[in-house]
Design a protein around this nucleic acid. Structure first.
Length: 355
DNA sequence: AAGCCGTGGGG
DNA sequence: TCCCCAAGGCT
């Protein structure tokens, strides 16, 4: 352990961070601002939960418009629990990690049916909810109920690795970093503290080029003293992404209806609407979902998923009213918007629209 | 328990 | 261009 940490106790560090947070906290739609907090206003559990699910592996910038849409359309957990699955999936389209949307609905229904429409306040019960893991349960307990849970996300891991100059690579270092986070978590204002560390990681202690000159923890930071902050946290090397190939079929009926297919709940893009298509592999099989005169577009749709690149050949056709598809279902224009599609499918649509 | 699961922005 | 990364959870 470095002398630096002995110079500033855990209590002093939490206090320093809270002071910084009171001056620099970002105003975010799901947060209770300083003035309202002084008036005794508490965060809405539904809104905090919704924001936390959306923010999993997703930036604040990407979440904002979705959060606004969801809270306007489904202002409370009862409204969301009563929503149609297809409407929620369509509203989530483009945000990614679609299991989150499926679990969001499941969770809303569990909260309504098993918990009387109120989010449970204890970490253990929160953990039983679909889509709520260790991080999210701790964050909700801390932020909503001021329970001093140890909140550890990617930001906290990075900040802890730097403050303690911890060079053990992730994910191996996770238990150690969690211990470090636990020692710093205060009993006073744990909700503010949790948001403060994450804000610090998101705005000051950033992955690249951290703004150490502005950091309230600089004098306590072992990495700053050692000059190693830019190299932390260490991470296990990543694998290269392979490239897969596929074919999608965009059939438009003469009345303007599009031939679409609901993807199975499990797996990639699970539960989302998409174009009927081939498997995604080295040599996809050409298997049109309906008999037609298919035209192949000159340009492929390119997309990158978490673990592979995809090159999609796009085929289009115009089909008469009376022809039945082997796969999928025609959806008429008022019931379909390309915005309801996951991004890769929307890219194929955009290519077809431009010819 | 390591692999699966999206997307858009930044360097 | 390409790789990295982001308030993770599930199996």
């Amino acid at each position: 352990m470095s002398d630096l940490r002995e110079r500033a106790s855990a209590a002093e560090m939490s206090a320093d961070l809270l002071e910084w947070y009171d001056r620099h906290a970002r105003a975010l739609p799901w947060r209770v601002g300083p003035a309202a907090r002084v008036r005794g206003e508490r965060p809405d559990p539904y809104r905090v939960w919704l924001s936390e699910i959306m923010l999993q592996q997703t930036t604040v910038a990407a979440v904002k418009s979705y959060y606004a849409t969801f809270t306007t359309r489904w202002p409370n957990v009862q409204a969301l629990a009563a929503a149609e699955d297809a409407d929620v999936m369509a509203a989530w389209a483009g945000l990614g990690y679609y299991a989150r949307a499926r679990n969001l609905l499941k969770c809303a229904r569990v909260v309504v049916e098993d918990h009387g429409g109120r989010f449970p306040g204890d970490h253990e019960t929160l953990l039983t909810l679909p889509g709520v893991g260790r991080y999210t349960a701790a964050a909700i307990a801390a932020i909503v109920f001021d329970d001093p849970q140890v909140v550890v996300d990617g930001n906290v891991e990075r900040v802890m690795a730097r403050v303690h100059d911890e060079h053990t690579p992730l994910p191996q270092a996770k238990p150690v970093l969690t211990d470090m986070a636990a020692r710093l978590t205060p009993a006073d204002r744990p909700g503010c503290y949790a948001q403060a560390v994450m804000d610090l990681g998101a705005t000051i202690c950033t992955p690249k080029r951290p703004a150490c000159g502005l950091c309230p923890w600089r004098r306590s930071c072992a990495a700053w003293a050692a000059g190693t902050q830019a190299d932390l946290p260490k991470k296990a090397p990543k694998k290269r992404k392979p490239t897969r190939h596929g074919i999608v079929y965009l059939a438009r009926r003469v009345d303007g209806a599009w031939l679409l297919e609901r993807r199975p709940d499990k797996g990639l893009l699970g539960g989302m609407l998409g174009w009927p298509g081939s498997d995604w592999s080295d040599t996809p099989a050409d298997a049109p979902p309906i008999r037609a005169e298919w035209r192949t577009l000159s340009e492929e749709a390119l997309h990158t998923f978490t673990h592979f690149h995809l090159r999609l050949v796009v085929k289009t056709a115009l089909v008469p009213m009376d022809r039945a598809p082997a796969r999928g279902k025609f959806i008429e224009l008022p019931d379909f918007s390309p915005a309801d599609l996951p991004t890769v499918m929307r890219k194929a649509f955009d290519l077809a629209s431009r010819g």
